[in-house]
Design a binder for these strands. Structure first.
Lengths: 251, 251
DNA sequence: ACAAAAGTGTTTATTATACACCCATGT
DNA sequence: ACATGGGTGTATAATAAACACTTTTGT
């Protein structure tokens, strides 16, 4: 037992030397793509939505598809995802998080293509500002009403949604799907929609007050037929202080 | 505001039609590899260790490296990782979990290679049984004594270690690094070593009793110069029941 | 004055933390 | 008999959950 982790220094005598990289690339041709699950929050329907496009791959004509593209020679994976998003939404500086790679040999009917999945969070209002610059059919779908997608995109979507749910509880990312100024009710509705749970209003508000990452603005809602709610914004500096003091955002 | 999520059905008139996949693959040659961070727990040193090999890439001669290989044409990513592990350790059926892809253009000196990182958990005793079948230099390193590795492997290692830490708290994966029969103290030591925290012995044991995923065996430690500890094993069925009842493993 | 949602405090239950003594075995 | 680590219970603090009334605005 005491010897269990000692080192074994065998002579390196691998029967076949590793092939040259350039040879391997020729022998195993494959493509690499990124696919983005674009999440947006619909404050009217109180519903999480995702942005889909009509597939451009002949084998999936008519199917809806995630936003994806093949990776170019000189861009990183995240740059590729950002470029794809910019092309489809006109937006830059979008929250982007890698989820994982999907790579079973049969996943693309046109050849071996491994894809790296990202999820992104956008403020739908920002997207709206850009729609007239775009020339591609894109549509928001409620997360609860997604049919059969192209490729293995349903699988990818599930993974991304699960990652979003996990991350939403542990990182202050929900704000990326809300306007810069929002009410606590909007924030709560977003959490309830994404996580598919219900929070007690008073407990939710108390928790946020305790975490102390929101800035209370000297403004209120306008044009509502009831007592107008206070507006808040997410305060990055307060969040940094929270982290510095060894604490974490957690809901 | 109410219109924010309506659909925009532009005609599809993308100026450039998407290129054929096969053309793209020729124009953007790239390689895809898997890299495995192999974690093992050293019950003597009470220390998390990882298995490294001498790099076979000329540019990194002399450096230590994760266990990796280029992906073959007809294997999935996980199969590729499993094959790589089998080649280096002689073991199959190893716990394998994908972490993420790493793909900045400069990460491999020999060309564009994107790598998919996995971490794996092995019982060191199982590894020991296979060492005489292996002909490659491999060595266990304490997680706290890792120098500069080949490629971006330090970065990859950090991501894998963080994922391991997160997952260890939420899934019953620690047992994959222990012998089939273990004492509660061994389990606690493992948790403390990986998470770099200390647990109160009584609270730790109470928690595990409450979670109820262990089977108390009718055996005890042998040959110890003190009261022998009871041996336990992880009970998959109990864990399944836990999940079915809507609860979760959490430490 | 009424409708509609905003805003606020207290009580209770659950979970986490801190802590000290006796027990079984080998030498 | 003693040294060594195994095994157990209780009290306290912190956190989460449950719950109802008053306030502000527009109509």
């Amino acid at each position: 037992m005491i010897e269990q982790l000692r080192t074994f220094d065998f002579p390196i005598n691998s029967p076949k030397m590793p092939k040259k990289l350039s040879d391997h690339i020729k022998e195993v041709p494959l493509g690499l793509s990124v696919d983005c699950v674009v999440f947006g929050y619909d404050d009217i329907d109180k519903d999480l939505k995702i942005l889909l496009i009509k597939s451009e791959t002949p084998e999936f004509e008519g199917s809806w598809s995630l936003l994806g593209d093949l990776i170019q020679a000189n861009e990183s994976l995240k740059e590729s995802a950002a470029r794809t998003l910019a092309k489809r939404t006109g937006l830059s500086d979008i929250y982007l998080e890698q989820v994982r790679a999907f790579g079973i040999p049969e996943r693309h009917p046109g050849g071996r293509v491994i894809t790296i999945a990202y999820y992104s969070l956008i403020k739908v209002e920002d997207y709206e500002l850009n729609i007239d610059k775009l020339d591609l059919e894109a549509k928001w779908f409620s997360i609860n009403k997604i049919g059969k997608l192209a490729f293995d995109h349903n699988l990818i979507l599930n993974h991304c949604l699960n990652k979003l749910k996990r991350t939403l509880r542990e990182q202050p990312i929900g704000f990326s799907m809300l306007p810069d100024k929002f009410t606590l009710k909007q924030l709560q509705n977003l959490y309830e929609a994404v996580l598919d749970v219900e929070f007690d209003r008073r407990n939710f508000r108390r928790k946020l007050k305790k975490i102390d990452v929101l800035l209370e603005l000297p403004e209120t809602q306008q044009d509502v037929a009831h007592r107008p709610a206070k507006l808040y914004s997410f305060d990055k500096k307060k969040y940094q202080s929270l982290l510095k003091s060894g604490k974490h955002f957690s809901l």
